[in-house]
Write a protein that binds this DNA or RNA. Structure first.
Length: 98
DNA sequence: CCGTTGACTCTTT
DNA sequence: AAAAGAGCCAACG
């Protein structure tokens, strides 16, 4: 299984209206490749298929997105997530892989 | 094959 | 509190 595929596999597990962080994603892969995770998402072949826009920084900031930060935010809002100042309320929306 | 880069995070000034 | 340094791993040239 490719790195990307593992990531996608985890992405589809995120419930609607929730988000996760690069960190938790990496941990779910059993490593600390925080950056590699973002890298994989960036080069993801099917960004429309998988909710890669649900992945944010551990600090709660929305972070970057291939198609632009604005798009990411818009998509997140569509999921019912309230964003203020490019920040997300982690306590409310964070989904942790178990 | 080695060095650089990146949608990152943690620790130390 | 804010900024800088260190660590991390996959992908690309």
């Amino acid at each position: 299984m490719n790195f990307d595929q593992k990531i996608c596999n985890l992405l589809i597990k995120i419930p609607k209206g929730k988000v996760s962080t690069y960190k938790y994603l990496a941990e779910a892969l059993n490593c600390k490749a925080y950056r590699a995770v973002g890298n994989a998402l960036n080069k993801n072949k099917s960004p429309e298929k998988y909710p890669c826009f649900k992945i944010i920084n551990s600090s709660g900031f929305v972070g970057q997105y291939k198609n632009g930060q604005k798009t990411k935010i818009r998509l997140l809002k569509k999921e019912g997530i309230h964003i203020k100042n490019n920040k997300i309320n982690l306590g409310k929306y964070l989904y942790k892989f178990k």
